[in-house]
Design a protein around this nucleic acid. Structure first.
Lengths: 260, 260
DNA sequence: CGGCGTATTGACGCACCTCAAGGTAAGTGG
DNA sequence: CCACTTACCTTGAGGTGCGTCAATACGCCG
């Protein structure tokens, strides 16, 4: 079971920096957080299960959460990998009708998560228009990323998908590109990228062409020019140019790496 | 150029029934709509182009709009097909930074579209918390559909994708399942389903197995039990069950067809 | 050590993409 | 009304990336 974490100076900063609250005064933040409880989840601990009723809204302060569907035969399909700063259950909160989880949520790494009752979110949105705008902003961002992802999914090779995933992970989670440890198992990565584990295994050696090396869970991004170039090639025929255009965002990530 | 349509009794109903406004009084709706202008777009008329700055927020009252990316080599990739009731540009309105369209928007059929200045939306959300909730609801719905779509995309065969698309189109656009005319060109459909036109052509005859016939643009959904059965099979191996679970929504559409 | 979950490797097949060549429908100008 | 153009769609032959199935190897813990 997750352990409740008492507020202290160290974790108070998490609350102050939650994007949803940006633009509020510290006093307002504290009022809003009165209904929130901070929990520490160990890796593999369950937030909720598929078909459970939706009861909470979560803000990930540290760590990562794996959202996935489980089929009758036991096969798993990743829906999202949410990381620090992301929210969970912001969308079901606003949908009409029976609110039941359609995915499982499990801590992918040891995590610090702020839990609110699900009704809290709707109230916060109604009472603070800044919160409404912030939430709309993060949902818009998420929608944009999903569109990009959908395009990449259908136009890019497994190499490119993996290369993009690794560079994005490196940027988002603030790792050092010269060498960092991937916090997820390879099966999660494969599922996240909608490819088979076997395909992922076979893809990893090919990443050397892109200037990325992966050994066990240790990732090195050692040749950015090569990476940049390979992300935009390897697309057969007419799709080449298309893929390039969708890669603008990923190119942005590469730039971030360069700047660092 | 789109023609401005003057408010009259016929199109006043469109404004009253906009989902974004549900929960408001008629007077409030009219106040909000003061900044809106109703336009009639002919098929193929352009709402905006890729890389244009974002200037307007749109509500589709009638018809459909095709959102697509155009690559340097001229190849097109569909991002969305929005239909009556949908909004356009609700997400860019809340994103920070330079606001530039990353897709083209073109009327896919003759359409009636309500245009607002882009700043209008943010104001409406700030001034009316009901509008904020409504918008969050429709964005949540859209996010849910995109997740579903992403799953289907990677797990379903082209037959299933096409069958799902046709049944959904039939339901969403309120056609008669016994026979209706698809309002889109086949190239749009193919692009929407992220498959090649050739693949779509070859897939159409196979739809007879699912109880659907397509000739030119005329679609008949004539065997619902067969359809239901075929949507859940044809998935190789372990993915079978997975696909079934994602098909709940489509199964819902089939039920709607049955009820009609 | 043995058991278990995770990861790799190989052989094989198929669905879909690619390239290329008609074919059909709709609009245009004489 | 008929030639002509253009856009859209269909059909064929061939290639390939990735899924499938199955066997093996690795790392971890009791």
């Amino acid at each position: 079971m997750p352990k409740r974490v008492l507020p202290n100076n160290a974790n108070k900063d998490f609350i102050k920096n939650i994007f949803l609250f940006s633009g509020l005064t510290d006093a307002e933040k504290e009022t809003l957080c009165a209904d929130g409880v901070l929990y520490s989840y160990l890796k593999k601990e369950i937030l909720y299960r598929q078909t459970d009723p939706v009861t909470h809204f979560y803000v990930i302060c540290k760590g990562a959460v794996h959202l996935f569907q489980e089929a009758a035969d036991g096969s798993l399909v990743t829906e999202h990998l949410r990381v620090a700063g992301d929210t969970i259950n912001s969308t079901p909160a606003f949908l009409p009708g029976s609110k039941v989880h359609h995915v499982n949520a499990v801590a992918a790494t040891d995590s610090l998560i702020l839990d609110f009752p699900i009704s809290w979110l709707k109230n916060a949105v109604q009472n603070y228009s800044v919160v409404a705008l912030n939430l709309l902003c993060s949902l818009s961002q998420r929608a944009y990323n999903m569109e990009l992802e959908a395009r990449n999914q259908s136009r890019m090779s497994s190499q490119q998908l993996l290369a993009c995933f690794l560079t994005r992970t490196c940027v988002i989670e603030g790792h050092d590109q010269r060498g960092f440890t991937l916090p997820y198992s390879k099966s999660i990565v494969a599922s996240r990228l909608r490819m088979m584990q076997e395909t992922l295994s076979r893809t990893i050696p090919k990443l050397e062409e892109c200037g990325i090396s992966v050994e066990n869970k240790h990732v090195k991004i050692y040749d950015l020019p090569k990476l940049e170039q390979n992300l935009c090639s390897h697309c057969p025929g007419a799709q080449k140019c298309y893929a390039r255009s969708t890669l603008q965002k990923d190119a942005g990530n590469i730039k971030e790496l360069k700047a660092a």
